[in-house]
Write a protein that binds this DNA or RNA. Structure first.
Length: 832
RNA sequence: GCGAGAGUGGCGGAAUGGCAGACGCGCUGGAUUUAGGAUCCAGUCCUGUAAGGGGUGGGGGUUCAAGUCCCCCCUUUCGCACCA
């Protein structure tokens, strides 16, 4: 050991961490008030709750320390902070993992919660653990079921027979949002189509509001809002009734291009569409169509979508009539038509739609041009190898010739409306939310099917419908609960007759659609939550989570909140005022960390070696919070040096003068160096405050490093200033390095927690220097720096510049034609 | 294909239209040390001995001034993907 290292203070992080964690627990530092004082400001800091699939990993660690820094700073700003945590504990992955290990899903889940909770406590995240919620507990899912019943009462939970996404591996149906590129989001198996009767939430009733209200959320990232808008996919157009020639029956279609109506040369129906049945096909055509439909049904969605432009279909032998011109057109069945969008049938305009163009070419169907780019340039069909899909001027369209743009769309639609064979129409890509799952590990659907009364909601006083403990919970294609007679066989709550429970459970995303409200009143046995408490805590002031939930959870929970708003349970239309998407944590090669790849870095291991706060600072410092991180421990080397050699030893320079932290120093109290330090301190406070608002902790740390580097305590004569600086620095680092800051704070003689001290505010009279340096440019290029007095008059600055040897050189005796002077910043001389 | 981002040293990354590369890693040199994977000091965009010149994916533009704003292109990430 050399002299130097001996002098250095030892940072015994293990001791310090456990000491202050115990103390914070003891004084219940993180407890949010049961009933917040409406006169004081509140801050609801929400991080997405966790799926207990093992211990927490680097991604969780990053996510939660970001929220933690926000919560702690808010605490210091005097807000009443609600920073809760819980577990998204039901669901398929947990069930699958449990099965793999031969464990009951409940045992597996609770064990993981235990382990993860311990780790999170070790990280020292400021969660109010007294409000912890676990979505698979009966006390919680009782209310998940209650929400089902409320939706059911309003007609927003309904059963429908239809084609659904079926995962053959997980043996359950999936919501549209859980199918990614035609595969099961969870197990990557190609999803099949099945005809099944399932429960849906009518989220499409809220489609307009889910889009329109995004404009009331300036605190949400634009890209996220765009993703939601596109997912919901609103488009305006017209519905127009064609008629079947033989039967006179109507065949409505949806189009966004009514201006191309005269270019229709055939129609196509989706193979799944029941419309085909009503055509009453017979003979040869029926055989061909039946075969084609069977073939199409077998093809998976990806298969159908990935066909590189190659479309196919079969002619039905039937014709339809275009109501606009009476033309007879062929009626086809084609699998490029989607059964679930619009009416399941389309009018095909090969001249002006690429898909129709390809199809018409393949089957030698006529192509008609009815739109020209403008009055002068005309299309030549012979030269076209694709459709012209832009808007333009209507031609070959009878009375509508010459109309263009929006006017064309409107006039055609108005005409159809007047004649009674068409109407304005709005369509969405969003489909209703399929919430039934044929799996064991979920909240049972609180419905009893009675042969006489139909589906009857379980009376609210009988909730929860308990998930029975069963031996056999393996997926088998129908719900495992269906084979538990003592569960299934019940009396109808309406007529008292023999009836059966619905055997399915609810999608986990239902559980996660309302958890943020349960935190507000987690023990309430009579209600999901107390309305007046919710009124005080809501809305969420900041919601932090991954962008991966953009078109799933983050739409579902907005939908739930709007529904609750409609039935009078919450007063806001939107649940979260601000949303922040943190970046992912990948390994150093850019791979996602996963157990199977064996590249998982454990935050526990890191913290054991380096200490919690140094690990935290390393993570913050690597990248701004919204960017992804390729995790490497290299960055920690610099952080560790900074904390161990520079920051922590600051307490040694503390002189015990206990300065008033609200006091602002006056000019005449300070020497030149002291004044410089003081001004720089105020600049630092301002900068850290602004960066913290943006969650940009990397630059917060950089700012602290610079300041501490320039702060030479030995040269400071004024004890109060010296101590003032040290105390402010401790406060500034507290949100991101809580244990270190608390230790230093107490070592300087404070008896209350640093988190009960007031967050620094800068002295508005001391954030600028008297003498500043401004840039001098010649023709926009930097040619020199001038030291001037702040606010020096323009003439003086110009004079100084003109007499500066280096600048003179660049002026080269040429005439100055323009002088641009930005006060205290820059002078640009334009010469010729 | 459509939509939204992103592109800055060897690396992570800074920069309300106003001094590009803060801060850190790495690297180079030096000091100290029995030793260094410790500590401290200095240097580190390219070119040039220097003065200077050039430089933020490429090309154009707006401006006194562009990494930043506008247009085109390239690369890349994410989302959607036959939505009629």
């Amino acid at each position: 050991m050399t002299d130097k290292t001996e002098k250095k203070m030892k940072y015994n992080f293990k001791e310090i961490e456990s000491k202050w964690q115990a103390a914070w627990d003891e004084e219940e530092l993180y407890r949010a008030p049961e009933n917040p004082d409406p006169k004081r400001e509140k801050f609801y800091m929400l991080v997405m709750f966790a799926y207990p699939s093992g211990d927490i990993h680097m991604g969780h660690f990053r996510n939660y320390i970001i929220g933690d820094a926000v919560a702690r700073r808010q605490m210091m700003m005097g807000r009443q902070v609600l920073h809760p945590f819980g577990w998204d504990a039901f669901g398929l992955p947990a069930e699958r993992a449990a099965i793999k290990r031969g464990l009951h899903p409940a045992d597996w889940t609770y064990k993981n919660i235990e382990v993860s909770r311990r780790t999170l406590k070790k990280v020292g995240v400021s969660f109010d653990w007294a409000r912890e919620v676990i979505s698979c507990s009966p006390e919680y899912y009782k209310w998940t079921q209650w929400f089902f019943v409320q939706l059911f009462k309003k007609g927003l939970a309904y059963q429908k027979e239809g084609l659904v996404n079926w995962c053959p591996e997980d043996k359950t149906v999936l919501a549209n949002e859980q199918v990614v590129d035609g595969r099961c989001e969870r197990c990557d198996t190609i999803v099949e189509k099945k005809m099944l009767k399932q429960w849906y939430y009518k989220i499409t009733d809220y489609a307009d509001r889910l889009i329109d209200d995004l404009d009331t959320l300036p605190g949400w990232p634009e890209n996220l809002k765009t993703m939601q808008k596109e997912w919901i996919g609103r488009s305006w157009g017209a519905e127009i009734d064609f008629t079947i020639k033989e039967t006179g029956e109507k065949l409505p279609i949806f189009t966004t291009r009514p201006d191309t109506i005269f270019g229709v040369t055939f129609m196509a129906i989706a193979p799944e569409s029941p419309l085909i049945d009503s055509l009453n096909l017979s003979g040869k055509h029926k055989a061909v169509v039946d075969e084609y439909r069977a073939k199409a049904m077998k093809r998976s969605e990806i298969d159908r979508a990935s066909v590189t432009g190659e479309k196919d279909g079969v002619f039905t032998g039937k014709y339809a009539i275009n109501p606009f011109n009476g033309e007879e057109i062929q009626l086809w069945v084609a699998d490029y038509v989607l059964a679930h969008y619009g009416t399941g049938a389309v009018m095909a305009v090969p001249g002006h739609d690429s898909r129709d163009f390809a199809f018409a070419k393949k089957y030698d169907i006529p192509i008609k041009i009815v739109i020209h780019p403008d009055e002068k340039s005309k299309l030549d069909l012979k030269k076209m190898d694709d459709a012209y899909t832009e808007y333009g001027v209507m031609v070959n369209s009878g009375q509508f010739n010459g109309l263009a743009g929006q006017d064309a769309l409107d006039k055609v639609t108005e005409f159809a409306e007047k004649k009674g064979f068409g109407r304005k129409k709005k369509n969405f890509k969003l489909r209703d939310w399929l919430i039934s799952r044929q799996r064991y590990w979920g909240a049972p659907i609180p419905i009893i099917h009675c042969p006489k009364c139909g589906p009857v909601a379980v009376p609210e006083e009988n909730l929860p419908v308990m998930l029975p403990q069963v031996e056999n919970y393996l997926p088998k294609g129908r719900s495992p609960l269906a084979d538990v007679p003592e569960y299934m066989n019940v009396k109808c709550p309406k007529c008292g007759g023999e009836a059966q429970r619905d055997p399915d459970t609810q999608d986990t995303f239902v559980c996660s659609s309302w958890y943020y409200l349960r935190y507000i009143d987690p023990q309430n046995a009579d209600k999901p939550f107390d309305k007046s408490l919710a009124g005080k805590w809501m809305p969420i002031d900041l919601y932090i989570g991954g962008i991966t939930h953009a078109t799933g959870h983050l739409i579902y929970f907005r939908f739930f909140h709007k529904f609750l708003n409609d039935i009078g349970w919450v007063k806001d239309n939107e649940p979260a005022r601000n949303m922040f998407n943190h970046g992912m944590v990948l390994d150093s090669t850019g791979e996602v960390m996963s157990k199977s790849k064996g590249n998982v870095v454990s935050p526990v291991d890191l913290m054991d070696r380096r200490g919690i706060d140094i690990s935290r600072l390393g993570m913050y410092f690597t990248a701004p919070s919204e960017k992804e991180v390729l995790w490497s421990e290299d960055v920690i080397v610099g952080i560790e040096k900074f904390i161990l050699n520079r920051f922590y030893p600051l307490v040694e320079n503390y002189r015990g003068s206990s300065p008033d932290l609200k006091y602002y120093f006056k000019d005449n109290e300070l020497s030149a160096y002291e004044k410089e330090l003081y001004i720089k301190l105020n600049q630092l406070i301002k900068r850290i405050d602004e960066d913290s608002e943006r969650l940009q902790y990397n630059t917060v740390i950089a700012g602290l490093m610079e300041y501490v580097r320039d702060f030479d305590s030995g040269k400071v004569k004024n004890d109060k200033l010296n101590d003032y600086i040290i105390l402010k620095l401790i406060q500034l680092i507290a949100p991101i390095a809580p244990h270190l800051a608390e230790e230093m704070w107490r070592q300087t003689g404070n008896v209350e927690s640093v988190f009960k001290s007031q967050w620094p505010e800068y002295d508005p009279n001391a954030i600028v220097f008297e003498n500043i340096s401004i840039a001098v440019q010649v023709n926009g290029k930097l040619r020199g720096l001038l030291d001037i007095n702040r606010d020096a008059p323009e003439d003086e600055v110009i004079n100084l510049a003109l007499n500066d040897a280096r600048i003179k050189n660049h002026l080269d005796g040429k005439a100055i034609i323009k002088k641009i002077y930005i006060r205290n910043k820059l002078l640009n001389l334009v010469i010729k």
